[in-house]
């Protein structure tokens, strides 16, 4: 009886020491979970999730302070990936944070722009070039489509233009072959 207890205690002590030692020896700087979550997020930096950017949202998810379904640009696929990473059940997107839209880029109507720089200050990725009293232009390849430049514009000269499919962006679709359609009976 006493031997058993002693053995158990000894095992507990040894494993405890090993754990403690490895916690110091293999310490990982930063928050690797937040990092991994951030890698999944689309980096739109739109703030629709309620956090000022993707990184803060990732950190909130890592801490368990935010749900995984608050990122409309990431869409259902993003939720699925997050669920996979965190080992939880995927859930539908929370509509209070917005719905997914086709990927778009902002476009400034240069006839209307008064060069107020308000949008430049709002852009989270510095994708608008221009200076005071000069026309502003979106750097399309760097625009994430976050729409944060829309509200500050005093003359409403910014519109979101969906990215049209063109040859370089064309994708092969998933082939439709399987059997089920022959039967005409869909299995939901």
């Amino acid at each position: 009886m006493i031997t058993a207890i002693l053995v158990m205690v000894a095992i507990a002590v040894v494993t405890g020491l090993v754990l403690g030692w490895s916690a110091i020896r293999f310490k990982v700087e930063g928050n690797p979970l937040a990092e991994k979550i951030d890698a999944i997020l689309p980096q739109t930096q739109c703030g629709q999730c309620g956090f000022p950017g993707c990184r803060p949202y990732a950190e909130a998810i890592a801490k368990g302070e935010a749900d995984i379904n608050q990122c409309p640009p990431g869409g259902e696929e993003g939720v699925k990936k997050l669920a996979e990473l965190l080992g939880v059940e995927p859930k539908p997107l929370d509509e209070t944070h917005g719905t997914p839209k086709p990927k778009s880029v902002a476009f400034i109507d240069e006839q209307t722009c008064i060069g107020c720089t308000l949008c430049i200050q709002a852009c989270p990725v510095d994708a608008i070039s221009g200076a005071a009293k000069q026309m502003h232009t979106i750097i399309a390849v760097e625009c994430t489509g976050c729409e944060l430049c829309l509200p500050p514009c005093p003359v409403d000269c910014i519109t979101m233009v969906p990215i049209a499919e063109d040859l370089p962006h064309w994708k092969w679709k998933h082939p439709v072959v399987m059997l089920k359609q022959v039967s005409g009976e869909a299995r939901a």
Binding site: Q43, R55, W172, K173, H174, P175
Partner: peptide, 28 residues
């Protein structure tokens, strides 16, 4: 057809990933 689909899907994702990395870098 399945291989073409998979390839173009992978390319598209890599492109998206690159765009996201760029956005993250610029935001930071």
């Amino acid at each position: 057809d399945f291989y073409r689909y998979a390839k173009s899907e992978i390319w598209a994702r890599e492109k998206e990933k690159r765009a996201a990395d760029l956005a993250r870098e610029r935001h930071e």
